[in-house]
Structures are given as structure tokens and as C-alpha cells.
Design a binder for these strands. Structure first.
Length: 585
RNA sequence: UGGGGUAUAGCCAAGCGGUAAGGCAUCGGACUCUGACUCCGACAUUCGGUGGUUCGAAUCCAUCUACCCCAGCCA
């Protein structure tokens, strides 16, 4: 009986692996030239300061997928160079999400903090080469000295300290002799560079802050621009893939590599991050939704986090399929969320057992069906997968159908139940509506029908055609369930776009940052308490997924579902051409 | 107005000098005991604009335009 819940279909083999994108083209070229001796080694480098979202999934699929496709390796490396932001909670969540997506880093789990000693040594080398110096300028002064987009910067008065002095000062920075912000170590490059990243960037800052992995060992921490390329080099990364905003950091990346690394040099390539319609993906904004309680947490089923999708009922296969389909390019773009949902439905259609659930029940009485009688009917579990087998459901005189499936005064193309009309009850009989019972307020409380015993599914007269087929649950077997209908958190296609016109922007416009909150969909969650569902759902395992016939895909909630209190989340609705046709009128 | 990028259909996206892949969306139609699925069909005489090179240009050259990113001791 529980078989239905476990009969998870075969995962479709993804054959779209010969993907053509500019990064793979580069790799094919590198392979042809035997660069890196034929090695392909990538890495996924999250900062453990938040949960992974759908945008990260694109990067994970690119990095792990590329390694897989070219017979290479992909490391997981936490970019944990800023202890004030980071936490092990995020480290664990990130690991779980990557595993859930189906990728494996083998034994190659690394942390930038693993390299703090080596990075310190690299910095010392730079000083010894006269290519780095300790600078006493305040943060404000550094900003002033940096110049602007159109004007060159000025050299720091500390720029020409002797190597010995720099060495001494840097060591004393490490030893904790100076307070936060008192000094920094900077690369000595070019204050007049048109690329601001090259204007003597800070590479080490003083931060008296315990680190989640190194504890109190360090009070100076390397900056991303310094730690990242060198970590790549330490791990023998060949292709270092990141997003577009780091494009003008590439000269700096190369500068550190060229000055400190011999042998194979990792190369950085940049691709456009994912944007999704009706979705916010900025870490800051997601954090806000969580912290201000607009959602129940990072794993709220409405969140575009991987934890949220998991709780919602998305399959990892569908997310990977999506990531493979959207492509990888350098043009900023916003993918229609309809594509994600398409991938989801395609996967779930093949896998999810069908079951009947009435979300907004209205009672039907089959007046010519004997009182007290019940009978077992056979129902196929998944027409897409015969191996999923059959189950038995109970029919009885009283049953429930969807309130929406009855209309007293229907339009011409209405295939469902209405007075005097016939419909088939899925897996059961054809019934005909004879009478409508209403209460004092005119609300329909019962629909009286007769059934045609000859039309039993699979029976001799079962071939008779009627236009509509309804899902139903008999009173004899129905159990109550809570159903949570989730909708988009934002209805706006681009919730992150400012509503204010750029032209009118005044200097003082801090508040715009929270603009997106005003676009929250007030109906993103609707809770239905008295749904009638097949009794088999009582035993559904948390996280198991079903198609509620004619309605959509639903998932037994990972946290709240139990046999005593069945709770189902709507993952996504079925496509509904009837609703679309209605809307057009 | 400095530097770095990007422009191919409603949305993604291939294309790499030989005459515009594919997917999503949309619109028909077939099938259907899920108005689902599936299937069949339609959907860029044109690649941001303009000039040029060439027998031939989305691809090469010139120029213009639009949009994105950069002035953290964040990543």
C-alpha cells in the first residue's frame, strides 16, 4: 500500500551534455592545445554568509557540470576571508544543498582559511619584491587618494616605505599590535590606472574578530582579490569561473598570479549571473525577507533558495535541467520563470504518483447507490509509468467533488457538472446531476446525482463518452488534510527594478533599497484546512510528491506533515487551458 | 565625461565568411476516463543603427546608439 509513495519513476537521462557555451569552447580549445596537460579543474567558491539560491545553482551546475563533462574535477571551496559575515550554519547548509542538487566534491572540501598561512607568506614575498606596502591612511583617506572614475588617484605617503619597515609593520599587524583600521597592506601597482582595482588595492586588513574555523589565530585577514586567485593557484584550478562583475578584477587576478605563481596559471572567465522573472535573488534582499519575517525562514517554500525549493517540493533533477537549458553567456538576461516550471512539471509528470484530492469540497449524493454500500475501484498510479502499478480506492453513496467543478448556469464550453448534465468520475462511474440542494443563503450544500452502473471504468459500457471527467473522494475513505497553496512571492516580472525613474534620482535616496518589499504578493500563501484526500496520503512520507489529479503537484511537507496531521504544499499547478480560456472572455 | 563588458523573436540561446539551431512562451489543430501529458502545425527574408570590404556578412572593418559593471579595509 505504501508502495505508491515509494514508486518513484526512473530519472530521465540527460543527454544535453554536448552543450555549447563560450566557456566550453575555450576549454575544448585549451584541451586541443594541451594546456594544463589536458587537465580541467574548476571550483565552486561560495562565501558562507547566506543560503544558496537558484543563481548559485547555475554556477554549481556550470562548475561541477563542466568538470564532469570534460573528465575533470571540481572543488568546493568556502571563501571565508571575512569572519564578521560568516558562520558554520551557512557552511553546513551550503554543503547540504550541493549534495541535494546531486553534485559531489569528493574529498576536495577546502576553505580559503586553510591557506591563511600560505597567503601570509605570499604577502611577505610581495613585500620583499617591493610590490606591497603597509599603509597608515584611514579608510576615508584611502578613498580620497583613490581618485575617481575619471581622475587618477594620488600615491599614498606611505607607499615608499622600505622593505624592512614594511616587513616589520606587517608582522606587527599580524601580531595584533594595531587596532582595527589602523593599517592595511596594499599592493603597489598604479594609482593612475584607469581600472580602479589596480590603484594599490588593499590586500590585508586588520580585523580583531574570531574566525569560525581559525578561531583567534589571526587578526588580519586577506581580501577576496588577493585570496581568490592564490587559492585557485594553490588548488591547481585551471578555469576559474565567476560572474560578470568581476570582469575588471581580472587584471588584478592576473597580477597576483604573475607575481607569485610559477607553472600552470589559473585563468578567470566571467559569465552573466541568472535573473529570474518574479524572483529576487540578491542575498541582501533574501536576508531581509527572512529577518523581517516576511517569510518563515531561508527554507520557506516561497523562497528561491535551494532549501526553499526543496521544501516546496522541487526536484533537484528539474533544477539541473533548468540550469542546463538556460545556457551560459555574457549578456545580462532575465529568464522567464515559466521555463523553470516547465522543467519541474516535465520531471514530476514522469515521476509523481497520481492521487485524488478535493481542495474545496462540496458533497455529492448518489441517490441510486445503496446507503451503506461501498466498493473498491482500481486506479492507476501513473499513466506515464505503468510500472507504478495500481491502487484501490473506495466508492460510496456520499462523496466530495471540487466546488469549482459544478456550475448551475454554465457557459457553453463547460465540460464539468451542471444540472441535468453528465460527467465521469475518474476511475468510477458516469453520474448525472438531478438536483441541487442549497441552504438559506443560497449556498450549495449538496448535489444529488444518479449513477449509471453500466459505466464503471473498465466495465462493458465504459466506452460511452462524456465531455468531462472529475476527480473526487468518497466520504467512505476521505481523510482531512491541510493544503498550502503557494504562489509567487512577487507578481512583478522584475521585482528588483526600482519604481523610481532614474532621471529623478536625488542624492538622498537610501530608502529605495527596500522598494521591493512593496511589491510582495499579499496572496503568496493560502492555507486550506478541510481538504478531502485519499486515505493513502495519510502514510505519505514527508517530502514525497504527488500529482493531485487535475490540479497540480503537491508535496508532503518536510517539517509539518504527519499521519495525524497531513500537510501538503502545492509545488506547482498543472497547466490549465480552461482557466486561460475563461480569462480571455 | 575614465575603464571594462553586452546587443540574434515576447524570454533564454546556438551560430565563428556560404545564405538564421534548439528550448520556453504564445496561437491553431489532433488525441484524451486528468481542459494534464503526448502529437502535429504556425511563430526572425533577418541578427541594435548606418556605412564599407566581399561573388557572398549575424559573422570582417569603421562609425554611431542603447544597456550593464567599477570609486568597500564586502565577496
Amino acid at each position: 500500500m505504501i508502495n505508491i509513495i515509494l514508486c518513484w519513476g526512473v530519472t530521465k537521462i540527460d543527454t544535453s551534455n554536448t552543450s555549447s557555451n563560450f566557456i566550453h569552447n575555450i576549454i575544448r580549445e585549451d584541451l586541443k592545445m594541451n594546456k594544463y596537460g589536458g587537465r580541467v579543474h574548476t571550483r565552486f567558491p561560495p562565501e558562507p554568509n547566506g543560503y544558496l539560491h537558484i543563481g548559485h545553482a547555475k554556477s554549481i551546475c556550470l562548475n561541477f557540470g563542466t568538470a564532469e563533462e570534460f573528465g575533470g574535477l571540481c572543488n568546493l571551496r568556502f571563501d571565508d576571508t571575512n569572519p564578521s559575515q560568516e558562520d558554520t550554519e551557512f557552511v553546513e547548509a551550503i554543503k547540504e544543498d550541493i549534495r541535494w542538487l546531486g553534485f559531489s566534491w569528493g574529498d576536495r572540501l577546502y576553505y580559503a582559511s586553510d591557506y591563511f598561512d600560505q597567503l601570509y607568506e605570499f604577502a611577505v614575498q610581495l613585500i620583499k619584491k617591493g610590490k606591497a606596502y603597509v599603509c597608515d591612511l584611514t579608510p576615508e583617506q584611502i578613498r580620497e587618494y583613490r581618485g575617481t572614475l575619471t581622475q587618477p588617484g594620488k600615491e599614498s605617503p606611505y607607499r615608499n616605505r622600505s622593505i624592512e619597515e614594511n616587513l616589520d609593520l606587517f608582522e606587527r599587524m599580524k601580531n595584533g599590535e594595531f587596532p582595527n583600521g589602523a593599517k592595511v597592506l596594499r599592493a603597489k601597482i598604479d594609482m593612475a590606472s584607469p581600472n580602479l582595482n589596480m590603484r594599490d588595492p588593499v590586500i590585508y586588513r586588520i580585523m580583531h574578530e574570531p574566525h569560525h574555523r581559525t578561531g583567534n589565530k589571526w587578526c588580519i585577514y586577506p581580501m577576496y582579490d588577493f585570496a581568490h586567485p592564490l587559492s585557485d593557484a594553490i588548488e591547481n584550478i585551471t578555469h576559474s569561473i565567476c560572474t560578470l562583475e568581476f570582469e575588471d578584477h581580472r587584471p588584478l587576478y592576473d597580477w597576483f598570479i604573475d607575481n607569485l605563481i610559477t607553472g600552470d596559471k589559473p585563468k578567470q572567465y566571467e559569465f552573466a549571473r541568472l535573473n529570474l522573472t518574479k524572483t529576487v535573488t540578491s542575498k541582501r534582499k533574501l536576508r531581509k525577507l527572512v529577518e523581517k519575517g516576511y517569510v518563515s525562514g531561508w527554507d520557506d517554500p516561497r523562497m528561491p533558495t535551494l532549501a526553499g525549493y526543496r521544501r516546496r517540493g522541487y526536484t533537484p533533477e528539474s533544477i539541473r535541467d533548468f540550469c542546463n537549458r538556460i545556457g551560459v553567456a555574457k549578456a545580462n538576461s532575465t529568464v522567464d520563470i515559466a521555463l523553470l516550471e516547465h522543467c519541474l512539471r516535465e520531471d514530476l509528470n514522469a515521476k509523481a504518483p497520481r492521487v485524488m484530492a478535493v481542495l474545496d469540497p462540496v458533497k455529492v449524493v448518489i441517490t441510486n447507490y445503496p446507503e451503506g454500500q461501498t466498493e473498491k475501484l482500481e486506479a492507476e498510479n501513473n499513466p506515464e509509468n505503468p510500472a507504478a502499478g495500481h491502487r484501490q480506492i473506495l466508492f460510496s453513496r456520499n462523496l466530495f467533488i471540487e466546488r469549482e467543478d459544478f456550475m448551475e448556469d454554465p457557459p457553453k464550453n463547460y465540460f464539468r457538472l451542471s444540472p441535468g448534465k453528465e460527467v465521469r468520475l475518474k476511475h468510477a462511474y458516469i453520474i448525472k446531476c438531478e438536483q441541487v440542494i442549497k441552504d438559506e443563503e443560497g449556498k450549495i450544500v449538496e448535489i444529488h446525482c444518479t449513477y449509471d452502473p453500466d459505466t464503471k471504468s473498465g466495465g462493458p459500457a465504459a466506452g460511452r463518452k462524456v465531455k468531462g471527467t472529475l476527480h473526487w473522494v468518497s466520504e467512505a475513505e476521505a481523510i482531512n488534510a491541510e493544503v498550502r497553496l503557494y504562489d509567487y512571492l512577487f507578481l512583478d516580472d522584475e521585482p528588483e527594478a526600482s519604481t523610481y525613474c532614474e532621471v529623478e534620482l536625488e542624492p538622498d535616496q537610501e530608502e529605495d533599497e527596500d522598494d521591493f518589499l512593496s511589491k510582495l504578493n499579499p496572496n503568496s500563501l493560502k492555507i486550506l484546512k478541510n481538504c478531502k484526500v485519499e486515505s493513502i496520503l495519510r502514510d505519505a512520507l514527508p517530502g514525497s510528491k504527488f500529482q493531485f489529479l487535475r490540479q497540480g503537484y503537491f508535496c508532503a511537507d518536510l517539517k509539518d506533515h504527519s499521519p495525524q496531521n497531513p500537510v501538503f504544499n502545492r509545488i506547482v499547478g498543472l497547466k490549465d487551458s480552461w482557466a486561460k480560456a475563461k480569462q480571455k472572455k
